[in-house]
Write a protein that binds this DNA or RNA. Sequence first.
RNA 1: GGAGAGAUGCCUGAGUGGUUGAAAGGGGCGGUCUCGAAAACCGUUGUACCUUCGGGUACCCGGGGUUCGAAUCCCCGUCUCUCCGCCA
Length: 424
Amino acid sequence: MLDPKLIRTEPDKVRQALINRNAPVSLLEDFIELDAKRRAVLTKSESLKAERNAVSDEIAKMKKAKENADDKIKEMREVSAEIKKLDGEVAEIDEKLKAVVYNIPNIPSDTTPVGKGEEDNVVLRYEGEKREFDFEPACHWDIAAKLDIIDFERGSKISGSGFILYKGLGAKLERALFNWMLDLHTSEHGYTEVFPPYLINRKAMTGTGQLPKFEEDMYHADKGDDLFLDPTAEVPVTNMYMDEILDADMLPIYHTAYTACFRREAGSAGKDTRGLLRVHQFDKVEMVKFVRPETSYEEHETLLGNAEDVLKRLGIPYRVLSLCTGDIGFSAAKCYDLEIWAPAVGKWLEVSSCSNFEDFQARRANIRFRPAQGAKPEFIHTLNGSGVALPRLVVSLIENYQQPDGSVVVPEVLRPYMGTDVIK
RNA sequence: GGAGAGAUGCCUGAGUGGUUGAAAGGGGCGGUCUCGAAAACCGUUGUACCUUCGGGUACCCGGGGUUCGAAUCCCCGUCUCUCCGCCA
């Protein structure tokens, strides 16, 4: 969430951000109205409380002196009733205010390109060469079926469409990929691995911004548990430090985590449904950083570099996009996407989003640090990036490394994990 | 799932209705002493909100309630520990 003081003092900045994001400006107007109302009622309530506290002290003294305090007690009874009424009003306004504030997106960074939607994202660069085929490349779903490494039918039989059953070397490829990525990030990029729970409570889901706005996109275990399946490791990992004040010498903290990710993909019915392009459960290795505010934009660049390293070492051609204000995620101030080339599908596929949230998540999740001994706590900055998401990576690997005989060559870095250099 | 115990500041831990934002000890920080350090001694050491910048309010796991007044009493919930049951 945004700093309420910032919304109060720089409403024009917030208004422009909402416009650039195609978000309703009424959010700002609602906030300003409710906020003013809240402060008026709060001030009234607090001054009555001050009176009550003072008189209660007097009553205590009078009782000690064995004087009769009945008049004052009667008077305070009325004051207390009034306080209760006012506090009820404050609570009511607070609820409304929360609903508004939690739905105001982050202010995009000055370096985020302004644009309406996907089509205005800026391609920063292309990396790697697209492979030249001297035969007609097959689509990953055909290759996978022939090699019997993915069983789409049985996957949907047990769960439904969008649920993938990997088999044989397909299952092993999945496992090899996330093991290798975790090893890369921990041993070469300086991240500490964590392996968090997959089921997340409402508070944590709110901390990173998935709730309340995106509840429809989440799988929800609601039989009395009120737990959500994590849509990304970002949620459990970022919220590890929820409600904490970290020591300055703990920063920066880098974590990497493998989790399965669960997304209902509500509202995207019929889009990219074939094969592995859009699925409800997928594997992903995530990188999460907790950093001092003044360093977050440098950290963002190295985070991007860490994600790119995965693709470089796998020898997959990709491009780097800077998302525009109309397409950037709700909580992010700036975001780079990595898209890899799938030659048979003929599309660029998003496999990583690297975002700087500045203090937006930290404020929601209440993650602070003490810049120096005795100094006031400040909100940290959080960042995260996929490093990377698996299904689309598998698409690209299979399609890029396919051979005329239908086999798939295993990229060199994965061979120690696969125990073979070709899937056939 | 059943029975019991507990949750207080950075930590240990006291407090069971009225100067308790909170004893005491430890730790941290500052100082005295010292060539320096240790020891000793002295001082200091929460967060958030509101503000007419004088102050004020709230917070002792979370939420309700009782009361003029709640860390303290009552109810609900969460978490931790112990025992029993079940279980990969």
